[in-house]
Simulated assay, not measured.
Amino acid sequence: MQTTYKILNKTIEGMLVLIFSLLVLDVVWQVISRYVVGQSSSFTEEFARFSLIWLTVLGAAYINGQREGHLSMDFLLTKLPQKRQHKRNKVIQIFMAIFALGVMVIGGGNLVYITLKLGQLSPALLVPLGFVYAIVPICGLIIIFFSIYHIKITFNPNHNEY
């Protein structure tokens, strides 16, 4: 499980860097085409919007796996004894997995299914919107994996991550 965790983190990091780089190039091209060439490209705004969706959702899944980057109020948690901190972290991870399953995997999966079934295409790129929204259930599964991974670490008394 540790190897899968590391490979998944490296893969997501690479994807985030790639998506962000493409987003920067897209926006730079949009500015150049609008102000230098005098005619705005038709696809740049839509591509920027879609890549920002992917960057945000994938980044949230990545930060969930890191456990250090999430904004949290842990003042009261750190005041608990170590054993109760472990139990509280387990409960938090369970709720995160339930949320990811219900909202992201099931709800996002339904969104993908409906948009693909209806044949909705993006106006400029003519990409099926189901492919754009597919990142939601994928990241839901990633978050569930990370939650299970962190719960497993919580049960390991020899691990000092928490």
Rank of each mutant, 00 (worst) to 15 (best):
V17N: 06
V132Y: 08
F20Q: 09
G38V: 08
L125W: 05
G38I: 09
R84H: 10
G119N: 00
P81K: 13
F99R: 02
V91K: 10
W54R: 03
F99G: 08
V57S: 02
T44N: 10
E161W: 15
L141M: 15
E68D: 10
H150F: 13
V132I: 15
D74V: 07
L23A: 11
Y133S: 07
N160A: 13
I153W: 14
I143G: 00
K90R: 11
I142L: 14
L71V: 14
G59Y: 02
M96W: 10
Y133H: 12
A134P: 00
G69M: 10
A61Q: 01
F99E: 01
H70S: 03
G140D: 08
G109V: 00
G108A: 05
A60P: 01
S41P: 10
I153T: 14
A97I: 07
Y35H: 10
K83Q: 11
N160V: 14
N110S: 09
T78D: 13
F20P: 02
L118M: 10
I19R: 03
I142R: 01
D26V: 11
I12E: 06
M73F: 14
Q85E: 04
H70F: 05
T78F: 13
Q120N: 12
I53G: 02
L16I: 10
F145H: 04
F131L: 15
H159P: 00
A48C: 09
Q85F: 02
I151H: 05
H86G: 11
P128Y: 06
S72M: 10
Y62G: 02
G65C: 00
P123D: 09
I53K: 02
M104W: 13
I98K: 03
G119S: 00
M73V: 13
E13W: 08
Y113E: 00
Q39G: 05
P137W: 02
L71C: 05
G130C: 01
F99C: 08
M104Q: 07
W54P: 00
A100G: 06
Y149S: 06
G102H: 02
M1N: 07
L22Y: 12
